[in-house]
Every structure is written in C-alpha cells, then in structure tokens.
Design a protein around this nucleic acid. Sequence first.
RNA 1: GUGAGUGUAGCUCAGUUGGUUAGAGCAUCAGACUGUGGAUCUGAGGGUCGGGGGUUCGAAUCCCCUCACUCACCCCA
Length: 447
Amino acid sequence: MASALIEPRVLRGFRDYLPEEMIPRQRMINTITAVFERHGFAPLGTPALEYSEVLLGKYGADAEKLLFRFTDNGGRDVSLRYDLTLSLARVAAQYGNLPVPFKRYQIAPVWRAERPGHGRFREFYQCDVDIVGAAGPLAEYECIQVDYDVMTALGIEKFSIHVSNRKLLEGLSSKLGVSDSAQSRAIARTIDKLPSQGEGAVRALLFSDAGLNSEQIGIVFEYLSLKGSNEAILAQLREFFANTPEAHSGIESLEAIIRCASAAGIPESTIELDLSIARGLDYYTGTVYETFLLDLPALGSVMSGGRYDGLVAIFTGQDVPAVGISVGIDRLFSGLQETGRIPQAATVSQVLVTVFNESTTPQSLQAATRLRSLGVAAEVAVEGGALRRQLKYANKQHIPFALIIGPDEAENGTMTLRDMESGEQESFSTVEAVAARVLEQRDDHLS
RNA sequence: GUGAGUGUAGCUCAGUUGGUUAGAGCAUCAGACUGUGGAUCUGAGGGUCGGGGGUUCGAAUCCCCUCACUCACCCCA
C-alpha cells in the first residue's frame, strides 16, 4: 500500500532561493563580506535559537509579539532570534576575553512572526557590522565609511547616506515638555514617516497618535524645517537647541562625523543630515543612519543602523558603547535587479565536459579533473546520452563552453572546445590550452 | 491584528444563463535526429478545478466555512 503523498510546500512567509536567484545573491554577499573584512571586521556565528529571556524586553512591546516563541522538548522557553544585534550584545556580555573594541560581522537569517507582504518575509537575512566598546565618533564614522565602501563595491554610484541622532529627538521632547517615554517614541515614529506620508499626514498623526497640541506641533515642524547644507543645519540646530542640553552631545557627534567623512574624502553630497530619520527600534541611543538609492527612493532604506550604548547593560548592568550598520540584502538585491545591475547567471559551470561513450569516458573525466585544478569550473555530463542531449543541457543552463571528446579526438589525442554562444569550435591538444581559452573569455566578460 | 480582492496543469490564463470525458499557449519528456544546442513537425505525460460542507437530476460555475496568496492599513528589513 502506498502511503499518502506529501504535498511539497514551505511555511507562510518562508521561501526557497533557487540557483538562478542564489548565484547572483551569493556573489553580492561575497562582495559585501570582502568589504567588511578589509575594514578588520571578523565573522561571528551565534545560534538561531536563544532563551526567550535573552531576547525579550529590549525590542519594545510591539516587537515582542513578533517573536517565534515556543517551549522546546526539554521544557525550555526559547525563541528564534529576531535580529542579530541582541545576540551580539549577549556575546559581548558573556565572554570576558574579547578584544576591545570588538569588531564583528554576521550574515545570517532572522525570524519574525509578522504578516508577510510585498518584500516582507518571516525568515530573512540580516547582514550586520558592529563595533562594541568604542564610544567616540570615529566608530560612528567608520560605519559610514563601510556603508560608502559597500555601495561603491557593488557598483552603485547614486546613493545618499542620511544621518541623524536620537539625542536630538530627546532634546525635542524636552523642548515640547514631553517626559513620558511612550509619548516620545510615538513622536519619533511619526516623524520617521515624513518622507513617505508627507507633512499633512504627519501633522494629523502628531495630534491623534502622539497627543500633541497645535503649539507643540508647530515646534516639531520648526525642527523638521531646518534645511540647507550640513554646515547650515548644524548651525541652526545649535541655535534651536541653545537651551536644551539633552541635545548637545548629539549635535557634537554629528559635527565630528561630518568632519571625519570630509577628511576621508567621502563626497559631501553623499552624506546628508536628515532630521526626520528616527529608526523604529527602541534600543538606539545616538547616531542613526539610513541609506537610499537615488534612482529608487521608494524602495526605502537599503542600509541602516546606529548607536545603541545601552544594550549590553541588560546583561551586565553596565553601559557598553556599541554602534553598527546593517545591509538590507534582500531589498538591495531587488533594487539592483530593478536597475539592471545584477548579471544573469543560471549556472556556476564554465565548461560542460561531454561524455561520448564508455571507452572515451576516462579521457573526459581526466580532462575535467585537470580543468578544475587549473581553476576552471568544469561539469561532467553525468547523464550521458546523445551528444545532442548534452549540448541541449549546456545551452539551457547557459554554460559558456562544451568540451567534446569523442572517438575521433581520443584517437588523435585532441579535444574540441565549442563556444556555446557563437557555435564556433576549436581543436586543442592540451587541457592547459583549453583552460587558458576559457579563462580568457571569462576575463573578457568581466571587463 | 483590521479591511478588500483573487484561487483552474510547473508558469500565464480560457472555460457561455449550472449541462456529457475541464481546454490553450509556454515549459517538460519522447520521436523525426546514436558526432553537435537554440528552429520546425509529430506525439506523450501532467488536474481530488485550493480544501471541506451545502443547494441541485447535475457544480470549476450558486451558498456557507476554512486555508493560501495579493493589495491597502499597522509595523518594519
């Protein structure tokens, strides 16, 4: 008796990445990883599952509802990680012998029990770099430098890094006479919507959601209307917050960041002080960043982060300075696809080594092995069959070359290399010559 | 979590006021074609019409429930 068939399916909000998508995605990640390591960030791995108490209590009440939380077979209360930052804070608190500052990167999936929507999933990747243990603006500037270098390495020219500081919002709350932290957060969340929803909507929300009166709303918009060059905005901020000490360290930090970036030669137009940037998560305490592609502003931020000095303290009781920035890999990937910057790649193979019959199989296998040792990705036509069939496979997979070794070639010690794009064939007597030909073609494509 | 919309082959979709055995294109596989892919022709496989219940002589079609997906809120990456 056959048992009931199992329907192949994945959970809501989860997905497979088929090779066609995974190949260019993996290449993008490799490029990003190389930038991280060039800045001295080292890889860190942490478990997907953590004790719930490690993850609870620092994201804010809304986020807690989004944890995948359950009891494991041993009766432990556990949750899938919601982001990578809290696990990093746990590591920083747990190991006493880490270097200071501790610089790590981590590219790994996180889970949120959210309702999936356009471009939103319950399992998605985060790609973070963080510096734990460095309090000064140099660490904050380094995140901007990494941001700039990642964008540049990916071939993106038109982007803008928007920078603000949570301390300014604290100063704003103080100036408004708001002391309730929930209300302060509501104000910040509402301000964050200015670019997407516009002034009218934000005014209405400040009244209905954040509970501000019209005089207070006037002050908020006085703050948000500070515009001009970065220098001009800083000057206006100093004046606006002259009697609000809570905001002063934020202004100083922004000044220092701008100075460092300018000294490092990052174009001034790339960094933009943007007072509407607030970031959603509650744990940010200082500088915050968001990065936008100028060609696709509606895509939203593709790289963002900030300073979160209080996070390690939930484990140790002591504040430890920390700052980081995170690449929104999926969003960035879809943005690059839209602007045509992702080359199509259906295969990783450069050569399909065909197999004619049993007597020529040894020659095919030897050629493939030699090609690989010469750095060529060589795939053997493992299914065999008619040569027509094998070439059809190479064509469909967009493998650029097919190496043909049949009885004729075996007899006179040659092999035939077919360029699948042009259909031209060339005879070679050594595998080294074949490899040179294939690698030359690849270099042409890259340049 | 709230509201609206859509579910028919792997994909995109037809399917008449409810009527016999649910179709097409693309894709897949085989053959024409055991030393050469993309083209053409011929043929084949592939469907519990999302699932369950109801109305009816009869349901892909009408009704109810449910699940999934899409869009807008909420929130965010």
